[in-house]
Each structure stands twice: as structure tokens, then as C-alpha cells.
Simulated assay, not measured.
Amino acid sequence: MTGATAFPRRPLGATGLHVTPICVGGGPLGSMPENFGYEVGAERGISTALAALTGPFNFLDTAAGYSGGESERRIGTALGRLGGVPDGFVLATKVDREGADFSGDQVRRSAEGSLARLGLDFLPLVYLHDPEHITFEQGMAADGPVEALLALREEGVIGHLGVAGGPVRLMSRYLRTGAFEVLITHNRWTLVDRSANELVDEAVSLGVGVVNGAPFGGGVLAKGTGTYQRYAYRDAAAETLRRIRQMEDACTLHGVPLAAAALQFSLRDPRITSTIVGASLPERIAETAGLATRAVPDELWDALSPLAAPADLWLR
């Protein structure tokens, strides 16, 4: 069940966009060794982008800042080989700061750079990326990034606006402005970390589409603790690793890969429209489809439920 018909499209909040329950994450295909621990060559990244654009999912997420724009460049090359964005496909990117500059002018430069690298004249969905690097007041200032994004949407450069970031309280403040139609939360709604529960509830109540990023916590919930001991791109706490080892044991007992359980934890949540899974090899697209459709018995969910890390270890 890896064909396109296996993954029906869902409405993404009130945007009018319809997306599959899995969104391919474009960070790894641009090569981000500082986050993922390995290099990805240009042709491998382009081939992965081609597989994402022609596979069972119709949603691809990237950012201007991923590898200094290399993710977008490789996606743009893939789009050129295909002759443009496939019909019905949703390509999302994010505007980024340049050093300490996250002004409105920088947002315009970031969006212009994305258009050039992707080879497009319109961006259907653009997120304000990691606004935790500035204060909320700076984000909402008269010459700030949110005002610039709203203007770009008014000018027809951008179709829909989202916000993508970490700290849940800050994300909540941005949602309450009414400026954003989509939320990306990452590393905070997984088997081990439940920080974003109330944020996801709030987004749904506001009619905001929810996209959940990093269901594998940056890798450990896919690779396992035997080969990877970091969560959210930093060394994981000993207790967090202990809980994950218990999850590994439970999954082994039920004959289910830990990665399948980690992915489906997000997929089975009706509040979440789509879940981002990064890919750096073409075959990862089909593998992800397989993980998404793997049978997981109720008994395993019962075993995994109490194994989340203690709340004081969550990212918040």
C-alpha cells in the first residue's frame, strides 16, 4: 500500500489546501550534518526530491535556511527536471533570519531567494521560521517579519501563512494574533515528549491546520538508542533514553519497528493534519509509506502510553 491512493488528502485547516497525512521533510536532502550526523551529496538530494515529488505523498516542506538554501536549490533542480510542480502538489517553505537580522526587509529577501532557488513565481505556503530567536514584540513590530509576510500575501507572492517553531507558549502567542493559518510544532508531540498537547488543542480550536514535525525526535525514535542517543538534536537525558529503551523492548515483543510506532503515534492523532518525515535517500519515501501502514496492535499502544518521559524533561 504505497501508491498515491493509499494516502487520501485532508484539508489543511482553513487554507483550502489538501495534503496527505505525511509531508516529506526537505532538511536532510539538502545535507545538514550538524543535525543528522551525515552528509548528503547533491545528486542524492536531487534524486530524493524527485522521489518526494512523484511518490505517494503530495506535501513537501523545506526552508530558506536549510543548508544555506541548498535544500531549496536541489528541490528547484528536481522541479526543473519535472517541468514544474506536479498538479495538486503542495510545496511549503519558510522565511529565515540572516544572522541577527529578522526584520521585514530580511523576510522579503528570504522569500525572494526562495523563489529564485525553487524556480517559482509563487509560494503556496510560507512559514515564519523559528521566531524564538527574536522577541514576540519584535516579531509583531510595524517593520517586522509578520507584517512583511502579510504584505507578501496581499501582493500575491504568498498564498498562505504559517508559523513554525519550538517553544509552545511563544507559538501560542503567534497563533492568537490570527495572522497564521498553519502551525508546525516539532519534537514536542512524540512518543517521548508531549509538550505540545495544549498547543495542538488551541490550534484546532482556532481553525489552524496542525503539522507535526520530527516524530522521530531527530532520529533516536527511528534508529534506536543502540546507534543514536540524541533527542531534538542534542544529547538526550539518561531517563529519556531509559524510557526509549523500554519502548524498544515493547516494540520488539510485538514485532513492530520502533519507527512505525513513533510515526503512527502522530498519524493516529485526529488533531494533526500531516506529519513531517525527513528524507535523504529516494528509497526512504517508500519506506516511510510502509511504516505508516504497518499494523500496530492495541496492546502495543497500551504498553507505550505510560513510557513517555517525565514532564520535567519535556522541551516545552
Rank of each mutant, 00 (worst) to 15 (best):
L82Y: 04
M32T: 12
V126E: 05
R108L: 02
G26S: 08
T135Y: 13
K94A: 06
G80T: 12
S31V: 10
P86Y: 08
E43H: 09
G119E: 02
E137T: 13
G76E: 03
V90F: 02
S47H: 13
L123P: 01
I22Y: 05
D105S: 14
G16E: 10
C23N: 11
Y66R: 10
A111Q: 04
L115E: 01
S103D: 10
G45I: 11
T135G: 14
I22F: 06
P21C: 08
L123H: 00
L60C: 08
Y38F: 15
A52W: 02
D96Y: 14
V85D: 07
T62P: 08
Y38R: 13
D87W: 01
D130H: 10
Y127V: 04
E112G: 14
L123K: 06
G26R: 12
P21D: 12
C23I: 02
E39I: 12
S47C: 11
R81W: 11
S31T: 14
G55K: 01
A42D: 15
P131M: 10
E34D: 15
H133R: 15
P131T: 09
L17M: 06
G104D: 09
D87A: 14
L82W: 07
S47T: 11
E39A: 15
E39L: 14
L128R: 08
S67K: 07
G139D: 10
D87T: 12
R44C: 13
R117G: 03
L115V: 00
R73V: 14
P86I: 05
G84L: 00
I22K: 00
G37E: 10
T62D: 09
H133Q: 14
A63R: 02
T48S: 14
V85W: 02
V24F: 00
V19M: 00
L123N: 03
T77R: 14
D61Y: 03
E132W: 10
L118K: 05
V126T: 11
E98A: 15
L125N: 00
G65K: 09
V126I: 12
L29G: 09
L125H: 08
L118M: 01
V40F: 12
D87L: 04
G45V: 09
V85N: 06
A78D: 08
G80E: 10
F136S: 05
V126D: 05
V24P: 02
L125T: 03
A78G: 08
E72W: 00
L82V: 01
A49V: 04
F122Y: 15
A42G: 12
D87N: 10
Q138D: 14
V40M: 10
G84W: 05
H18G: 01
V24W: 06
M140C: 13
L91E: 07
L82I: 09
F36P: 04
D96A: 15
S67F: 05
S31A: 12
G65D: 10
S71L: 04
D96F: 14
R109V: 05
P86C: 08
G16K: 09
V19W: 02
E39C: 09
G88V: 08
E34C: 07
D96H: 15
